[in-house]
Nucleic acid binder design. Structure first.
Lengths: 205, 205
DNA sequence: GGGGAAACGGACCGGCCGGTCCGCATCCTA
DNA sequence: TAGGATGCGGACCGGCCGGTCCGTTTCCCC
């Protein structure tokens, strides 16, 4: 949605008509429809079952052949990154919204609870919070998000509600740790709520 | 070390000589030496790099062929379980020792810090704390350990130092969560120490 | 030391998965 | 509508890994 004209992957050299300075691949309408289906299914399957879903399965779910997937995304990692970036977009929005709240500590609590709710059914989001699989684009945006989060934490510390010295990186580690443990363990919604509560308490002043 | 006569795996039907009611495979001395090497290397490699080390690599490190590994351990999971059980033995010992301490809360703090130190360089131990990969033997012993840990926690709660209602399962989830996050992230010793400190604080009264 | 049991290990199998190729179908434009 | 560009997808490749087989070596006991 964020890149309407250019879908993803390397554009096919130059397009025959309308060759301006900025190249626009101009996909055929069937290609565009297929790409959309692939993105949808990749998002669904990766979120449900994590990054070890095979490309063949995603292609089958989208009703296309593997090659069609690989035409838009040179490697499986690229597809995963595309999905992850969308998830990251959600997180950034949520973070911005939190920054606008008057009481930083309350915003912190709420964003962690929201995160838990999303993480429970979205394994892709969890992978976004982690090392980002060595993809520079993701790492960069993760670093930016952590900086934003740090600003929120600093405000909460200034309020006297949060433990001084709390770092955004530590919060991220704790949350993604709980996420991994519960994902692997098949935790219930109550488990998620409780563990995130512990994390919140750990960072209380 | 805990099973000197019977090494592991299924005993070869019946031994030709000395066929008592309790069967003792009576390994040839080269076989016994190889088995020992395999166990050592499996322990080392699994601990260093986790369960995705291939059997071929372990066999090569031990200076034997793959078939030699599979003769003692019918599947890779069995080998992993053997290593995990040893790790679990360490944990049980440590737990018993903690129960003997006079102040339960102090024992809790110490055991978590010890755990962090071990988890930092031993990925097998982390897998022990988790669902135990569906192996009944491991799950059973894990359940027993959690019961013991719960006894310690209850004492700490009675002391008034620990948050009432704290469950051994939640503690296990938090610790193994941090373990996963830091293992994946390549955290330093300081990171481990700090995160475990957060976990400890989370369970403080 | 010799014969038979026990163990060894390299070759092999089957399955999976990421990624590529190329003959063919589809679509767009003139 | 015709012809060429564009996209499609099933077959294929190479590599990895868990697990098995069987001819050969090693050991043990008489």
């Amino acid at each position: 949605m964020s890149h309407p004209p250019s879908p993803a992957g390397p554009p096919p050299s130059v397009s025959p008509s309308s060759v301006g300075p900025g190249q626009a691949p101009v996909l055929r309408i069937d290609a565009r429809r297929n790409l959309e289906r692939v993105k949808e299914e990749a998002e669904r399957l990766f979120s449900e079952r994590g990054s070890d879903v095979s490309i063949a399965e995603i292609a089958a779910a989208a009703g296309v052949g593997k090659a069609t997937v690989y035409r838009s995304f040179p490697t499986k990692e690229d597809l995963l990154e595309a999905v992850a970036l969308r998830r990251h977009g959600w997180f950034e929005e949520r973070l911005t919204q939190a920054l606008a709240e008057p009481v930083a500590w309350a915003a912190f609590e709420r964003i962690l609870l929201d995160l838990a709710t999303r993480l429970e059914r979205d394994r892709t989001l969890g992978e976004v919070l982690r090392a980002a699989r060595g993809r520079p684009a993701l790492q960069e945006r993760k670093a930016a998000s952590l900086a934003t989060l740090q600003a929120l934490l600093d405000r909460a510390i200034a309020e006297g509600a949060m433990r001084p010295g709390t770092s955004a990186n530590d919060v991220s580690l704790m949350v993604s740790g709980c996420s991994m443990a519960l994902t692997q363990d098949g935790g219930t919604a109550g488990d998620w709520r409780r563990l995130i509560g512990y994390v919140i308490d750990a960072f209380r002043a």
